[in-house]
Amino acid sequence: MYTVDDLRQQLVEETEGLAPRVTFARVKARAGRRRWRGPLTVAVAALAPALAVGTLVAMQPGAPRPAPGPTPSPTAHPFVGPALVTGLTVGDEELLLFHRAPDPNIRIDGESRAELRGALSDPSHERFRELRPVLVILPGSLTPRVVELPDGRGGVIDYGVVGVADARVEVAVDGRTVIANTARVPGVPDVTVFWISRDGPLAEPTGVPSGPASTAVLFTARDASGAVVGSTDQRQRGDGIQASPPPYPPDGEPDPGPAISVSPGTPTFRPPTVSPS
């Protein structure tokens, strides 16, 4: 026989021993970001017309112009160590970053082959997800290798590598040419990683832009002297986000534990957190 007092007691027992992992530092960090979000939203709304005009001017045919975009910054990510944070966001807030993942088990001509990985991380670096496919870097590979990723807001992010240090990568889309953002990845010599955010449909799953829905995109890499070193119109659609954590956490770093569980296939993005009122 139960009464409402038993119901009370069972509600208490149901939660006995439960403890949150929320820390004051984490709350304070999130509150700091939340304070900035309101004024930034107002500022962005006020600047939107000017930004739209600026973007249209930058995308006109003619001399290549630097592609507008956030400034990349090297950082030490708690999951993978040295990484390059592009400043581009996927979904609501996840940042696109690149990091080196040397694999001692994969060797070519007796040498360990380095791999460059794209990944998504939340701004506080508490969550981390690897992107596929892995970009294998062959020394002296002068043909850009390009991967496409939906940005979760209807746009596309093209990113890739070319085996030339300090390369400049031009991207031709619909008769317009822009300069992709480029950078070196910490710990990866003689390789340039590049990325660009744009509108348009994704490439076909095979990477061959043959279907009517695909947009022809030409990537041309130039070396520091301006000479063309390689070009490609092939791009591979990113086929998902790995559900496993990075295989080689930095020395001395604790195992970050399993990454966010996602389904394989089309990249999916975690549900947005509760937005501020």
């Binding site: 949150p20 992992r21 929320v22 709350v27 304070k28 509150a31 939340r34 957190t273 509760v274 009122s277």
Partner: peptide, 15 residues
């Protein structure tokens, strides 16, 4: 979800 909810409530309370 409970942890996320708790954290968001605390963030707003802190603010």
């Amino acid at each position: 979800q409970a942890e996320e909810l708790t954290q968001n409530a605390l963030v707003r309370t802190y603010t």
